[in-house]
């Protein structure tokens, strides 16, 4: 399967650190410390793999970095903006513009077509020529002939590529992926990893949570987490 190209060169290369986290801590129910004093920094062009045992706090860290969960302590900065000093709505808008998020399950809208799933990104931030861009992205990811199909008509790999197109729609500086290859066969996994690599090469940064050693090896850097802390 040919590797897809991401035909955009939109990234602001002036920021040294696209995203940085400082001393993040997150506890659940005051009993479980999911993330404990984690600090990290992702620079443009970095493709980082985050790995560790189940329950070590990888996904929680990803949520904190995306501003989807509020840390008990610590801060996250994206392109110089302190994420948690913003209101919830402004944080959502910042996320829409600067962060792409990919899940292990593609989490597509089951009632929308492939094209509409990608266009769902415009619910957060409208964009000119959205339909053309979504069509182009899907075509670049080998789904040009599946635009009107519903997610249930796609394979897991195809669904994940739709999710990838949706994540890349607004040309985010940061791509956060939570075990994106966990449900994919090797070909589709390779395709997704190649897309991440391309994104990083074009100046973005990618933080990918994974258990997969192959995926880890595709990254330029690997971070290991254990019991909520970076090892």
């Amino acid at each position: 399967m040919p590797l897809p190209l991401i035909p955009h060169s939109y990234l602001d290369m002036t920021d040294l650190a696209v995203i940085s986290a400082n001393n993040l801590m997150k506890r659940y129910n005051d009993r479980v410390t999911a993330v404990n004093a984690v600090s990290l920094k992702l620079e443009p062009g970095e493709f980082v793999a985050l790995h560790g045992p189940s329950g070590c706090g990888k996904s929680t860290l990803l949520m904190l970095l995306a501003g989807l969960a509020r840390p008990d302590t610590g801060s996250v900065t994206i392109s110089g903006n302190d994420l948690f000093s913003l209101s919830a709505n402004n944080r959502a808008k910042l996320r829409a513009r600067h962060i792409g998020f990919i899940f292990q399950d593609a989490n597509l809208l089951p009632y929308s077509s492939v094209l509409e799933n990608v266009l769902a990104a415009t619910l957060a931030t409208p964009r000119a020529n959205a339909r053309e861009r979504a069509t182009q992205l899907l075509s670049d990811l080998g789904l040009g002939d599946r635009l009107t199909h519903k997610p249930r008509e796609l394979s897991a790999g195809e669904q994940q590529r739709v999710a990838l197109a949706r994540a890349l729609f607004h040309e985010p500086k940061v791509l956060l992926a939570d075990e994106p290859t966990g449900n994919l066969d090797s070909d589709n996994a390779a395709l997704v990893l190649a897309s991440f690599r391309t994104h990083a090469d074009r100046g973005g940064c990618v933080l990918m949570v994974t258990h997969d050693a192959t995926a880890r090896m595709a990254a330029s850097r690997a971070i290991e987490m254990k019991s909520g802390v970076i090892a």
Partner: peptide, 16 residues
């Protein structure tokens, strides 16, 4: 719930 979470991850605000 998952769909709502996904939309929130895409940057869709709570009022929407």
């Amino acid at each position: 719930l998952t769909e709502i979470g996904t939309l929130r991850a895409l940057g869709v605000t709570s009022p929407k």
